[in-house]
Amino acid sequence: MRINICSVPVDDQAKALRFYTETLGFQKKHDIPLGEHRWLTVVSPEDPSGTELVLEPDEHPAVKPFKSALVEDGIPFTSFAVQDVGAEHERLDALGVRFTQRPTDLGAVITAVFDDTCGNLIQIAQEIHES
């Protein structure tokens, strides 16, 4: 058994695809019409055959209140690994991305949290390896 996909619930798949590719820099992997929505996934250009992120419609009535409650408390829906949180913060901030938590040094890890414009907060994290 292996983990090949994970998902984020988005309020608009077209908007999500733009944000996750044009702003974050992921690549579209699958885009298959499926009823009124699409099976839409992106991958990291650093690992194109790796885990796919499904941009999944957040239609179920329970999802929106759940997402709102997480956002209110600043809790990210998921987390991505980056080489340099400071550099990513600077790059994304220049693109107009709203951060709810600026880069924060927590010892073993540096993290930051931003809004994906589709109803979720996302964490980026950089592991600190002691040399």
Binding site: D73, G74, I75, P76, T100, Q101, R102, T104, L106, G107, A108, V109, T111, V113
Partner: peptide, 17 residues
């Protein structure tokens, strides 16, 4: 140290630091 934090950030700082 940093004003204007979310609950998530505060919890992370308390736990990790």
């Amino acid at each position: 140290e940093r004003d204007g934090q979310s609950l998530f950030e505060l919890c992370g700082r308390l736990a990790m630091k």
